[in-house]
């Protein structure tokens, strides 16, 4: 992963996932599920941002709430654990969402490893990383009136 120190922008280059879903019943399908889950995890981690005001989303459209596209997908490596789930059919268990869950936290950890900034709230925006690298929170909250406290 790369972080542009001048902007805070994150580029995810390569991502490896090892998934324990019990017995893999249909390997290409399971792999596709994991790849899709990683895409959604990257969206949650980096691009999807929901802003609220007076109980309503301020930008209720997909032109501002950005879903991840092929352009942000890194090179993927997907492997499955050699495992058997006794309570599941043929030893299998769910694979749909499981690979999504760790993605935001590994992106956060990779950012912390790269530039020493630990972001605790999603999405991990370039702006949060930028101010974190400069430790200028006071500058941000005083000059950015009206947007305080929205976790930018």
């Amino acid at each position: 992963m790369e972080v542009d120190p001048a902007t805070g922008a994150v580029t995810v280059l390569e991502l490896a996932a090892v998934v324990d879903c019990g017995t893999v019943l249909n390997p290409p399908l399971a792999e596709g599920q994991v790849e899709g889950a990683i895409a959604q995890g990257l969206g949650m981690a980096l691009t999807e941002r929901f802003d609220w005001r007076d109980g309503a989303p301020t930008r209720p459209n997909f032109s501002d709430y950005k879903l991840p596209t092929a352009g942000v997908m890194p090179q993927l490596h997907v492997e499955f654990a050699d495992s058997y789930e006794p309570t599941g059919p043929f030893g299998a268990k769910g694979v749909g969402e499981i690979a999504l869950d760790p993605v935001p936290s590994i992106i956060a950890s990779a950012v912390a490893d790269a530039v020493g900034v630990r972001v605790h709230e999603l999405p991990i925006t370039a702006e949060k990383i930028y101010w974190g690298m400069r430790d200028e929170d006071s500058v941000r909250t005083t000059s950015d009136t009206g947007e305080e406290g929205d976790g930018r």
């Binding site: 902007t7 580029t11 691009t47 032109s63 991840p68 352009g71 942000v72 925006t125 370039a126």
Partner: peptide, 10 residues
């Protein structure tokens, strides 16, 4: 042009 999230947008 700086696309801050790496996806197409304004």
């Amino acid at each position: 042009k700086f696309l801050v999230r790496g996806v197409w947008e304004y």
